[in-house]
Design a protein around this nucleic acid. Structure first.
Lengths: 231, 231
DNA sequence: GATTGACTCGTACACCGTACGATAAAATCG
DNA sequence: CGATTTTATCGTACGGTGTACGAGTCAATC
C-alpha cells in the first residue's frame, strides 16, 4: 500500500556538511517524490503524448526502477490525475490591487485556462474522464465568486457559470484535438475530393482551415458575457 | 491487411432454398461484418464502459474468434472511431416541409447531439481524441448551412459556428463526466468537510448538486443564439 | 477438378500495469 | 551502543492486452 504521506514536509538533513565524496557525485539523482514524479510525467506526456506514458519509461526518466514509483503514487491513473490537476493550476491576475474589473478577471482566467491546456494537448483528452481536482474547483470557485460579486443574481448564477465553463471546455477540447490531428485534418479538408461535395458550406467558409482560433474564441466569449452579465 | 471492402454490398445468396437442415439452426450466428461489429461494440461500451471493450470480449459477444474481427476492421482504434461516429448520426427534424424556422432546426440538432452523447457516456471521453468522422462533419455542415441561410454574414459565420459548437461539446463533455462519477461527485460535495471552506461560493450555489442540467443547457444556448444571430 | 480468393481462428509474442517479497538504508528505541 | 522498526528501492513474475502470422475452411471461378 503505502502512499501514507499526505503531503508531508521533506526533511533535508542529508549529507550533514563534511562527509566523504561530498564534493560532487553527478551520478545520483535526487530522491523520488510525488512532485518529481508528476513533473517528469508531464514532461513525458508533452514529449510523447498520452500513449507514450508508460510506468517503465517514466521510471527510466527518473533514474529509478519501475516499481519504486508505487511507493509514492497509488497507480498510473493517479499519476494522470495529478498531472492534469497540476497543469490546471491558476496563479491569478498578475496585477496587485483590486481594480474591480470583474470582466477582465474572468476573461483572463478563462483564457489562461485555455492556454494552459493547449500547452499540454493531452490534458484535453484527459479532462472528460477525470474527477474534479482541487485546481479545477478553485477556478470554478473564482468564476462563481467573481460573477456573484459582479451582480449576477443567484437565480442566474448557475446558468452563467456553466455556460462559460462549457464554452471554454468545448473550445479547448475541440482545438486541442485539432492540434493533435493537425496536418491530417488540414489535409483531409484538401485531399478528399468528395469532401467539397458533401460539405459545401464547410469548404466555402474554410471552417477547418486557417482559422483565427484565438480571435474566434475571444469573440464568442464576449457574446456570452454580454448576454449573461448585468447591463 | 484486408479491409479491402470499402462498403460493398453483401450478397445474400446463402442457403438457396431447399438444403438439408434448412428448417432451423438457432445455433449459428449471422456472418461478421463491420456493421455488426460496430453495433455490438456499442452495446458492449454501453454495458461495460470504455475500459470494458476488449477485442476478445467483443469477439465473444459476436460468437467468433478474436482474430476474425481483424478481417473486417483494421484495429481496435478503428472500432472506436466507427462506434463514435455511428452514435453521432443525425436523422434530422422529423417534420416534413421547410417551415423556415432556422432557430428551431439548430436547437433541435444541438439538443439531439447532446442527448445522443449522454445516451452513450463513453462517447464524450472519446470525442476529444478522435478525428472528425462523416457524421460529425455532416452536423457541422448543417449548422453552417442553416446559419448562413438565416442571414449570418460570412464574416461572422465562423465565430457563430464555433461558438455554438464549443458550447455544446463542453456541455456534453462536462455533463457526461459528471454522469460517470455521479454519486462520487455528489458525495464529494457533501463529504469533504474542508470543501465548504475552500469553495464557499460553489457550496452556497449548490453548483455541483441537483442542477437542472437540461434547463441550464437550453438557457445558455439561447443566450448564445441571441447574441450571434441577426436581429 | 484445380485454383483462387474471401474469410475464420489458434497460437504466439511483445508489452503493459502492478502484486509480491527480498533487500538496503535510515530512524527510532531499549 | 545494538536491536528493531520504518522508509524506500527494485527484480521477478503474473495475468491480461492488442495483434502478427500462418494454417485452415469453404464458396466462386476458371
Amino acid at each position: 500500500m503505502a502512499v501514507k504521506r499526505s503531503s508531508a514536509e521533506s526533511k533535508r538533513s542529508r549529507r550533514t556538511e563534511a562527509s566523504i565524496q561530498s564534493v560532487q557525485e553527478p551520478r545520483s539523482e535526487p530522491p523520488l517524490s510525488p512532485e518529481r514524479i508528476v513533473t517528469t510525467a508531464i514532461e513525458l506526456l508533452d514529449a510523447e503524448g498520452l500513449d507514450g506514458l508508460k510506468m517503465r519509461r517514466l521510471a527510466d526518466r527518473l533514474g529509478s526502477g519501475a516499481m519504486s514509483l508505487y511507493w509514492h503514487v497509488g497507480n498510473k491513473e493517479q499519476v494522470l490525475d495529478l498531472a492534469l490537476d497540476q497543469v490546471l493550476e491558476y496563479r491569478g491576475l498578475p496585477q496587485s490591487g483590486e481594480p474591480q474589473d470583474w470582466r477582465a478577471e474572468i476573461v483572463h482566467m478563462l483564457e489562461d485556462w485555455r492556454a494552459s491546456m493547449l500547452r499540454h494537448p493531452w490534458s484535453a483528452s484527459l479532462l472528460p474522464r477525470r474527477a474534479l481536482g482541487p485546481n479545477i474547483l478553485a477556478r470554478l470557485e473564482l468564476l462563481s465568486k467573481t460573477l456573484s460579486a459582479a451582480g449576477v443574481a443567484d437565480a442566474d448564477l448557475n446558468v452563467a457559470i456553466w455556460s462559460l465553463w462549457n464554452y471554454v471546455i468545448g473550445a479547448t477540447v475541440t482545438r486541442a484535438s485539432f492540434d493533435l490531428s493537425d496536418d491530417e485534418m488540414a489535409a483531409a479538408q484538401v485531399r478528399l475530393p468528395g469532401l467539397g461535395e458533401l460539405y459545401p458550406t464547410i469548404e466555402r467558409s474554410r471552417l477547418l482551415l486557417d482559422n483565427d482560433w484565438d480571435g474566434v474564441f475571444r469573440k464568442g466569449l464576449d457574446v456570452l458575457l454580454d448576454g449573461l452579465a448585468p447591463e
